[in-house]
Design a protein around this nucleic acid. Sequence first.
DNA 1: TTGACATATTCCCATATAGGAATGTATTAA
DNA 2: TTAATACATTCCTATATGGGAATATGTCAA
Lengths: 116, 116
Amino acid sequence: MARASTTSDSFNAVAEPRRRDILTYLALQEREVGEIVHSLGIEQPSVSKHLKVLRDVGLVRVRRNGRHMLYRTNADAIRPLHEWTSTFERLWRHQLARAKERAEQRVQKNTNRIQD
Amino acid sequence: MARASTTSDSFNAVAEPRRRDILTYLALQEREVGEIVHSLGIEQPSVSKHLKVLRDVGLVRVRRNGRHMLYRTNADAIRPLHEWTSTFERLWRHQLARAKERAEQRVQKNTNRIQD
DNA sequence: TTGACATATTCCCATATAGGAATGTATTAA
DNA sequence: TTAATACATTCCTATATGGGAATATGTCAA
């Protein structure tokens, strides 16, 4: 079996750095394709292809304005990602706390050594 | 060019559903490979291969205990993902707020219609 | 209607998968 | 030392990719 399709879910769609750049760019405000091309310095066909992937998984929305297509990020589709990563929050707080503890123990030991 | 390597960063590593399952499983507590195999119902060679990818990007840590390898999730490596998705939080709050507004306007209209 | 502009799509290809099967390696127990 | 256990690695293959180049499609302006 090969890797899952980039359009299988947002996790796969977002694995490509350019697509993350596009999402970030389109989060601020609605933009036409040409603006993405110029601002991010990506070839137009590539941009169109990336946008198609993003559309397929619902990460962006489009509307037409004459000859222009206006894209914007659909932030809601990013929530599953955010929520999945959030399940680890408690864990990294623990790890941080333990690192802190160990640091404090080291300080304590050094203090003792100096006092001895 | 082909797709970026699964080991190029955590975004790519985490795109594979099995690997997310493994990370979630290993977040609760340190486990040996055999436990992952049995609990998640994945073939042993596949588990080993997924674990290698996760190790390569620092998403899991290992230590040996006799014949057993004990793996655990390194939650800290998930933070970049969490932080990237967080940049969209404000945006989806706006979108939610606007959806709420629209809903309220609809209620208002209905009320008016009933009163008229 | 035609030309120009804005996007989208198609074709080509080098590359990296993930799973299955088979095999290799390390460590312990007897 | 040897057998058994626990993992890791290799080989194979169907499949999907992303970029470049070329081309198609759609819409407006004259």
